[in-house]
Nucleic acid binder design. Structure first.
Length: 290
DNA sequence: GTCCAGGTGGTCA
DNA sequence: TGACCACATGGA
């Protein structure tokens, strides 16, 4: 089957790209090159909310379904954004700013490695490390305007890597965490092969991986497994909580009760808080430097 | 030079 | 539990 081009509604590429959930896209001369498994797509924003997708690699069985899963195409985001703005008035501005962001369902192993790498790190450096890992040890899946794209390395290859290899990729003190997490992958896969676990059980299992704490576990559950009932709290979401709810906004008990209020969309609320605070910060820096 | 980043592990009270 | 610190790295 497969398609040459298709249109996606309710998707803003730039916002999604900058919402801190995806580290594998490349922005090249105004278009986004998006790898999904071993398939490569070129995505172009045709208007405010519509995107045209073009297949760059060979047609393969099942890739349409993979594409739909990746972009979460069955969910009605317009309605969900409206609902969030309606039931949480304080978030209205953040909702309008973030509208167009979709929550991507990405490869679970890639999310594990990516978010272990993300702790106390910058998005640009996370991207660089992951791109280097793929380029050095993965398989080439395609190219665009002279730029080559690579898959995540095979498990056997990952297993052969040592701490030094990850240090060379800029992983810093997280290198041993990555090595340990890779060793844990077969058992993790075994755990998951018994059927999709409830979010709480998945989080609990992920927390057993060295270098994975509550925040990283929540991100893996969300972006790798599509669990929407999580609420990852990082430095930016902390700033947002303080911004909206004052000093007690960052207390664990308060966060927990807020998360409950945001359900079943707590993950999307978290995402738009993250995006809103970062964009607000960028705006403030821009005006300051004038 | 200093600060900070999609935090976590370890220690101590 | 909660508060504190160290952690490797490089861009702003």
């Amino acid at each position: 089957m497969g398609f040459r081009t298709r249109i996606i509604e309710e998707l803003d590429l730039a916002k999604t790209y900058q919402s801190g959930q995806v580290f594998s896209w490349e922005l090249i001369e105004g278009v986004y090159i998006v790898p999904i498994g071993s398939t490569l797509y070129e995505l172009k924003q045709v208007d405010g909310s519509r995107v045209e997708a073009l297949l760059l690699t060979n047609e393969e069985e099942g890739q349409d379904e993979a594409f739909e899963t990746y972009f979460d195409l069955k969910r009605d985001y317009r309605r969900i954004y409206d609902e969030i703005a309606l039931s949480h008035k304080e978030l209205a501005e953040a909702v309008e700013r973030a509208r167009g962001i979709r929550l991507l369902k990405q490869d679970e192993d890639e999310m594990l490695l990516t978010f272990i790498l993300s702790q106390n790190n910058h998005i640009g450096r996370i991207k660089k490390s992951m791109a280097g890992l793929k380029e050095l040890y993965g398989a080439k899946i395609g190219s665009y305007k002279g730029r080559d794209f690579y898959s995540l390395p095979a498990y056997e290859t990952l297993l052969s890597l040592i701490e030094k290899d990850f240090v060379n990729l800029g992983a810093g003190y997280r290198a041993p965490y990555l090595v340990a997490a890779i060793k844990d992958l077969p058992d993790l896969h075994d755990f998951l092969s018994r059927g999709k676990p409830p979010t709480e059980a998945l989080l609990e299992r992920l927390l057993e991986v060295r270098g994975v704490g509550p925040k990283v576990a929540a991100c893996i559950a969300l972006f790798g497994h599509g669990d929407w009932d999580v609420f990852p709290v990082d430095t930016w979401v902390k700033k947002a909580l303080q911004h909206y709810y004052g000093p007690e906004g960052t207390k664990p008990a308060f966060i927990h009760s807020k998360k409950r209020e945001f359900e079943p969309y707590s993950s999307l609320v978290q995402q738009l808080m993250f995006y809103h605070m970062r964009e607000k910060d960028k705006d403030e820096r821009r005006t300051k430097n004038q």
